[in-house]
Each structure stands twice: as structure tokens, then as C-alpha cells.
């Protein structure tokens, strides 16, 4: 199977797409890959997840990778050394010790890197963008990626998923990684997944380990499904947002809103 979609079929006149699809293409790009962000704290296995995806999916999709390291281009070097993709399709962006800025407030460097990759290796099907490991609040701007997964691991603590936050709560997919280590760090994976599902109000959660192929194949299936939805125009990008759902007191008793789906609220008089 070899997907190769033209941009014209990917950005139809569907209001849902139009409203949310802030990701820009250059005029020279007639081809626009599906852009997937991979975020999450340091050491949870973002590079490993990307290596797994490349290894498992490179027969089906033409994939490119952009890494965002904090100090070095170590992640790019790791991925190149894994041999999961031709080395030239893995590029590093230096983020000046501000990995969160590079995926959220000022995405210009990453946007240019993605567009260059898409142009140099056209047609690409998927570009994976690895955020520099940061904290629980860092999520990708919808101006940069079409979908994002957020990676936690059991070794970081079983209670992290329960704490929620924009990445855990709102990413398109939450990955709980290294579940093979759970027994060694006294984490109940079932409970961690249940906590995560509760924080995510039904959005998907996958518990995986690269040592358990049946779990990583679920991850690959999720990407395949996402790609199909992207190509047929039914995928609507959502923004996990920098803010958790919150309550506004007003004269009529107040309301709760979630800041999701690229929906913009204009707040008057109480900020």
C-alpha cells in the first residue's frame, strides 16, 4: 500500500477542516504530508516511539522526521543510528533551550524545516515532529501539526496521568510507555490507564512497550487510521490548548468550556 495524496484533495471546502487547519503550506508544495507531533516529558521514550513507527510503517508510508533537541542533535543522531529511515530524511532543529516555544508560540523554525523536508523528498506521506523533552504543559500548535501524541512512561510515576493537563487531557493519543517496567516501579498499569481515560474524557490511551510487539502494533494501527482520515478529509485537527477546562462565573450562573477543537472564545470583562 502506498498512499500519495495531493494537497487539493486534502484541504476540501469542509468547514471543520477550514476552521481548524491552520497549518500552512508554501506555494511550491503541491504535496502536503500528514504532520504528527510527538510531545511529552524528558526520557519517556519519544525517540523510541518514533523509531518504532518508522521501523514498522516505512514499507507503507514515505516518512520524514524532524527532531527538536534542547542542547544537541542527539535525538536526530539516535534515530539515524537506528537505521529506521534514510539518514537524510531525519533533520534536527535547534530550539535555543526553549523546546516549548518552538512547538507552540514561535513555530517558524519547525514550519520551515517541515516544508523543506516535504519539498526535498516529495512526495512524503507522513512527517513526525519530535518535541524536545519538556514538561506536562507543552503541546503542539495546530499551526504546526495535524495531530499529536503525548508520551508518558510508567517509570515517571503512576500518578502522572491523573494529574491531567493539556497534553495528557487533549492530545489526539496518549501513550503510556515502558509498561514492561511497571512491576519494577510498583505501578498498576490498569489504574494508570483508567486515570488517563478519565482525564481524557474518552479520547484514546495506549499502554505500550517496544518489548511487546502486540502493543506497538496497536500504535501503528492508530497512525494508519489517522492517515486514512487525513486523506479522506474526515480528520479534524484539535488543539489540546495551553489551558485546562475551566469555569467562568457570570451573571447567568456561569458556564464551563473546554478550549478544544480550535474554538476561540472571546472573554469580555473578566480578565
Amino acid at each position: 500500500m502506498r498512499w500519495s495524496a495531493k494537497l487539493s484533495t486534502l484541504v476540501p471546502d469542509k468547514p471543520a477542516m477550514e476552521e481548524n487547519s491552520m497549518a500552512k503550506t508554501t506555494p511550491t508544495n503541491e504535496h502536503r504530508a500528514l504532520r504528527i507531533g510527538v510531545a511529552g516529558p524528558v526520557g519517556t521514550g519519544k525517540s523510541s516511539v518514533i523509531a518504532t513507527l518508522c521501523r514498522s510503517l516505512s514499507d507503507e508510508f514515505v516518512i520524514g522526521v524532524i527532531t527538536n533537541d534542547i542542547y544537541t542533535d542527539e535525538d536526530a543522531r539516535f534515530l539515524r543510528s537506528e537505521g529506521v529511515l534514510p539518514a537524510e530524511r531525519i533533520r534536527a532543529v535547534e530550539t535555543g533551550a526553549c523546546p516549548h516555544t518552538a512547538i507552540r508560540d514561535d513555530v517558524t523554525m519547525n514550519l520551515i524545516a517541515i516544508e523543506d523536508l516535504e519539498r526535498d523528498f516529495a512526495p512524503l506521506d507522513i512527517v513526525l515532529v519530535e518535541s524536545g523533552g519538556d514538561n506536562l504543559t507543552a503541546t503542539f500548535s495546530p499551526a504546526l501539526v495535524d495531530a499529536q501524541l503525548f508520551v508518558l512512561d510508567v517509570a515517571g510515576g503512576g500518578d502522572v496521568a491523573r494529574k491531567g493537563g493539556p497534553g495528557i487531557g487533549g492530545a489526539d493519543l496518549l501513550v503510556i510507555n515502558k509498561v514492561d517496567l511497571a512491576e519494577h516501579v510498583d505501578v498498576d498499569v490498569g489504574q494508570m490507564v483508567a486515570d488517563a481515560e478519565k482525564a481524557r474524557e474518552g479520547r484514546p490511551v495506549l499502554a505500550i512497550s517496544r518489548k511487546r510487539p502486540e502493543t506497538t502494533s496497536q500504535l501503528c494501527d492508530w497512525v494508519r487510521q489517522l492517515y486514512r482520515a487525513y486523506v479522506d478529509g474526515s480528520h479534524a485537527p484539535v488543539d489540546p490548548g495551553p489551558m485546562a477546562p475551566h469555569f467562568h462565573a457570570t451573571d447567568d450562573g456561569g458556564h464551563v468550556h473546554s478550549h478544544e477543537g480550535g474554538h476561540t472564545h472571546h472573554h469580555h470583562g473578566h480578565e
Binding site: 518552538a102 514561535d106 517558524t108
Partner: peptide
Amino acid sequence: GRLPAGGYAHS
């Protein structure tokens, strides 16, 4: 400096 032109990555 908040203009999103990537200047923050340079010293």
C-alpha cells in the same frame, strides 16, 4: 522579540 521569527534560539 515576540514576533515569531525564531530569534529566541540564538544568543
